[in-house]
Simulated assay, not measured.
Amino acid sequence: MRGIAWRRVLTQNIRSVGSLARWAVRRTHGVREGDQPVPYTGPQTAMMYGLLFVAVVETVMLALLIPWPLVHRILLVLDVYTVLMVLALHAGCVTRPHVVGADGSLRIRYGTLLDLRIDADRIASVRVERRYPDGKLIQYDPADDGILDLVVGGQTTVRVELTAPVTFVRPLGGEGRARVIRFHADRPELVTRATADATARARARGRPVS
């Protein structure tokens, strides 16, 4: 299990760094023609740039204060790595938005850490619900068929209730099952409107909603 966790962390870091190139050319991942991308990075952007500023200031200050070249080089490498990882994490979130599919399906993500796909026929309801939970970014309560909270900037804005639980993979490889997913979207009303519109279009064409 520990080996699987380390492999997942390494894979996530590689994908996040790869997101920097995608971010530079303004390309998104996993958004097809007819899909509606839904950004969610608004509440965390200022915090991310704040962390970058602190890391750069720390690097400059240590260069001035530490007289030992070897120690300075080691700390410089660590600071550069920190800056790269913060940028890569944010780039992963920007380039991997939530997605409302053309068929009414939902793809809920947080960078490279979590990617949950929900078919339209599994969705019982989608509504705007603002909450401000404390604690971790990803919170999971297996009681009552499972509740998954994906918190960004200390808040969630959308609640999705399903007709049956779906299985998802947690960041370190463990599995969970959730019947209620609460997540943040910068424009939560866009999720509800786009999901309803996509489902209506699919039914008007006489195609099964899936």
Rank of each mutant, 00 (worst) to 15 (best):
F168M: 04
D79Y: 00
V57Q: 11
P165T: 00
A178W: 06
R179V: 08
R182D: 10
Y40D: 00
Y40C: 02
V83R: 02
V209Q: 03
L148C: 07
R117Q: 11
E58Y: 06
D145V: 01
G101Q: 05
M61A: 15
T163W: 04
S105C: 04
A196N: 08
H184S: 07
A143I: 04
L113V: 01
H29L: 14
A63Q: 14
T163C: 06
V71I: 15
R127D: 14
V71Y: 14
A88S: 12
V38Y: 06
D115I: 01
R32S: 12
A63I: 05
Y140M: 00
G206N: 07
V77Q: 01
Y132H: 15
V152Y: 07
G154D: 10
D121G: 03
G104Y: 03
L113G: 00
R26C: 10
L106A: 00
E175T: 14
S105Q: 01
T28A: 08
S125D: 10
P133C: 07
A194D: 03
L106P: 00
I74K: 12
A194H: 04
G176Q: 06
R27A: 13
A124M: 13
G174M: 11
Y81L: 14
R122F: 05
W68E: 15
A102Y: 02
D141G: 00
L172C: 04
I123V: 15
A194F: 02
Q139H: 03
C93Y: 05
